[in-house]
């Protein structure tokens, strides 16, 4: 089932001459994990901001659950789409529990304060992610991996249908990467639409059901990891020779060793 559809979305920042997004059409389906791959400054962040209604497209349209995003209020949208940025440092040292309560804002009236019902949701999400023991800790005392899981928990507390994550595994060690990626898969298996950006080709290949490659403001390739992550496509983007192998039937790409040999001389 189609969750989000972009039709010819263009975007240009005020005062700039060129479009950052140059006519993007794409579909994100329910219960699937989509990896958004693309070099720095390719337009990934701008695309996310449009999906969050932080920015309005200059042309084209975005449809969420069949409704144009323009017709959804921010509050309505926030009950459908949740956002996990790479880094987030709250101004004051909230406890994890207090921080997660903020994720209930979409479900509360303007002057409301969270109630026991909201606390129950938090308990459930913390247990699902296996981090119940963090509840009373201060957000500023968490390790990098714990922090990332708490960010994801804050988004899940929103009880969204769509989860968007900006490079969720960047700066994490292998163990924490595994935890985060498992949480992403579990969310999709629970019916959520998951979209995450990454620079790691192999992470996209192994975790995602679908890979979309964005380059220079255009969606240049989208589909099965097997069909998208080919030598030809990747060479076109990064201009590098890569060596391919397969794990679990999926393509794995590494930098060709001669690149380092040349550097050593």
């Amino acid at each position: 089932m189609t969750k989000i559809e972009l039709r010819g979305v263009r975007f240009r920042y005020r005062g700039q001459r060129a479009d950052v997004l140059k006519g993007i059409s794409s579909v994100f389906s329910q219960g699937r994990v989509t990896a958004l791959l693309g070099p720095n400054a390719s337009g990934k962040t701008t695309l996310f901001k449009i999906l969050l209604k932080v920015l309005q497209p200059s042309a084209g349209s975005v449809h969420v659950n069949g409704k144009e995003i323009r017709q959804l209020s921010l509050a309505e949208l926030s009950r459908i789409v949740a956002w996990v940025p790479q880094e987030e440092e709250p101004l004051f040292p909230y406890t994890v529990h207090e921080y997660l309560l903020l994720g209930r804002a979409p479900h509360l009236g303007f002057f409301d304060v969270p109630t026991g019902e909201d606390e129950e949701v938090i308990k459930r999400v913390l247990a699902e992610l296996g981090i119940a023991k963090l509840a009373r800790r201060g957000t500023m005392s968490l390790s990098g991996g714990e922090k990332r899981l708490v960010f994801i928990a804050r988004a899940l507390v929103q009880q969204p249908e769509v989860l968007i994550l900006d490079e969720p595994t960047v700066h994490l060690d292998l163990r924490n990467r595994a935890l985060v990626l498992a949480a992403i898969r579990r969310a999709a298996e629970g019916g959520k639409t998951v979209i995450f950006s990454t620079h790691d080709v192999n992470e996209a290949s192994l975790v995602a059901d679908e890979v979309k490659i964005i380059n220079n403001g255009r969606m240049i390739k989208q589909g099965d990891p097997d069909k998208v992550l080919t030598e030809e496509v990747l060479k076109g983007i990064y201009g590098l020779r890569l060596v391919f192998s397969r794990v679990d039937g999926r393509p794995i790409a590494e930098l060709a060793p001669e690149i380092f040999r040349r550097g050593r001389k």
Partner: peptide, 15 residues
């Protein structure tokens, strides 16, 4: 409290 978060996160929380 929502104002003490990043602005894009505040947006994503419906405010």
């Amino acid at each position: 409290n929502l104002l003490t978060l990043r602005d894009d996160v505040t947006f994503s929380l419906g405010t």
